[in-house]
Amino acid sequence: MKALDSFNPLAVFVYFMASAGIAMFSMDPVILLLSMLGAVTLFVIRREGRQTGTHLFSLFLFLTLTVINPLFQHNGRTVLFVLNDNPITLEALLYGADAAAMVVSVLYWFRSFSSIITSDKLLYLFGLLSPKPALMISMALRFVPLFRMQAKRTDMAQRALGKYKEDNAIDFIRMKLSVFSIMVSWALENGIITADSMAARGYGTGRRTCFSPYKFRPQDALLLGLSLMLAGAVGAAMALGGLEFAFYPTVSKISPDFLRLAAYIAYALLSFLPATIEIGDALKWQYLRSRI
């Protein structure tokens, strides 16, 4: 399921900033739980590569981060046990789990983010901001594979010239450095050809536009609008103090008042928005295909 790939990058970018951003500055465990569920669901249904590896790593990270906090933070009333004269408290442990959930869910959001916002979409986003760095990104991305290829060629050429004198580590490092040095010369000198080619095609003659193959369709407006609206709702609830939550000295109780419930519902919708889009798209295709 890759429906999000065809959305306008700006809408997708705003969505991820909203969902991950709220997770990053909320301490409310329910919000973080929703964030975690939404991010993991999206990651799983998009079938990004290396599923098991990522989940195992995340679990490991979650456990480590959970344990670290009580080792350094000794506030809290409920002492579980004493380690080296330092009390290990339940509150600090729960705080650790809370922070770990935040970190891990943000990591999941970013996994999906970088698979959707590929480098040319990033280029487009930069282009909205300012065309020159956008062009530099495009050039650098053009140069990276070129340079890696050339570095390989240079290394082979040097080897076949007998420039590697002995089979040992120092000689190896010495040669790698000179290969890199040859590369620098080559890249700079040949860069002039690129620059001439740019000038020959009128670079710098006037106001440059930034061509984008991405259109802004109703579906993008919907995603953008919903992201802003739901994030705004959660933000408003936060600003009004509706999501206050403390761990020390004791863990606060969650009181089901209106503001809090509204924020939870808004964030739940936000968190599962992309998964809904993916599933809806898949169902639509299934339906359309069934009619053929």
Partner: peptide
């Protein structure tokens, strides 16, 4: 070395972007 950008479509568009 003459290609400036990383994608074929962007390379084709490059001169036209300069034209504004």
């Amino acid at each position: 070395q003459q290609t400036v950008t990383d994608k074929v479509w962007h390379e084709l568009a490059f001169g036209l972007e300069n034209l504004g």
